[in-house]
């Protein structure tokens, strides 16, 4: 079987960047798989250790999304599902920068967000919480980072809601988010919370994280300077993805 030869540690054969390998993920910054305080993880957590390998060419490359796929209002959840008017709730702007571990901005990468409405109800066929749906709120948004890694979207602050865990636990207000970076190995899905929410310290899902520093890094901070007078409060939330080594630190193909 013939194959194309790529340089060791190479990324994609097409597309930008003769970038180096994505740096090993520091698993100590993340929750372990088995977190019995979050009961659903008990039967959904592998018992064997993960098999660790340096990422190869396929893991150093990754899917690319063109900003042209986005419709004009996709980053405005107040209006992107409007039927008879704007979505109900506390109007907020969430914004920040996406950087990698080395401080490099992650440019032109797709961010997807989803959330409950102001009453804590998701527009999902499987959510049966008694709070009402808002006919003008879908809860899905997308945006791209710019050339400096900046992003923003406008939405309403989601409501807290009860869920089955230790009887009725309550989720703090949160927004789910998903990022791709420019490598398959940088994929990240997580949730952002709001400064000052009294449910934050009680949340079993935030409680899966190893320490207070990790939990704090998922809390968006109120930013009065960026708030829009007589319109919307602003919350700042910066995101960090795995970085890449410079190519001159990579092993040579014939090296050890």
């Amino acid at each position: 079987m013939s194959h194309t030869t790529l340089p060791a540690g190479g990324g994609s054969n097409f597309g930008p960047g003769a970038a180096g390998n994505v740096i090993k993920r520091d698993r100590a910054l993340h929750a372990p798989a088995f977190t019995p305080g979050y009961k659903t993880s008990v039967l959904r957590s592998p018992r064997f250790a993960l098999v660790s390998l340096e990422p190869g060419p396929g893991e150093n490359a990754g899917p690319r999304f063109d900003g042209k796929i986005l419709a004009p209002l996709e980053n405005d959840l107040i209006r992107n599902y409007a039927k008879t008017g704007e979505a109900v709730g506390e109007r907020i702007i969430v914004f920040g920068r996406v950087l990698d571990e080395t401080g490099r901005p992650v440019r032109n990468t797709l961010i997807e967000v989803w959330q409950a409405n102001a009453g804590g109800r998701y527009r999902h066929k499987n959510d049966a919480y008694l709070a009402a749906l808002d006919p003008n709120f879908g809860g899905a948004g997308r945006c791209m980072t710019d050339d400096d890694g900046n992003y923003f979207f406008r939405t309403i602050r989601p409501g807290p809601y009860p869920w089955r865990n230790h009887g009725s636990d309550w989720r703090p207000a949160h927004i789910h988010f998903s990022l791709f970076g420019d490598a398959f190995a940088q994929r990240l899905v997580s949730q952002l919370y709001f400064e000052g929410d009294p449910l934050v310290p009680l949340c079993p899902i935030l409680g899966t994280l190893p320490d207070q520093d990790a939990r704090d890094r998922l809390v968006a901070k109120l930013d009065m300077k960026m708030s829009v007078p007589f319109d919307s409060l602003a919350y700042r939330f910066d995101i960090v993805l795995r970085g890449r080594r410079q190519t001159f630190f990579e092993n040579k193909p014939e090296g050890h």
Binding site: R25, D26, L29, H30, A31, Y38, L99, D100, E101, T102, G103, W114, Y122, H124, N126, D127, H176, S178, L188, V189, S190, Q191, I205, L206, T208, L209, D213, A214, R215, R217, L218, I239, V240, L241, R242, G243
Partner: peptide, 12 residues
């Protein structure tokens, strides 16, 4: 910089 911690994608 420290990588942002992952959280579950959840049921929705």
């Amino acid at each position: 910089l420290k990588e942002t911690p992952s959280q579950t994608g959840g049921p929705y």
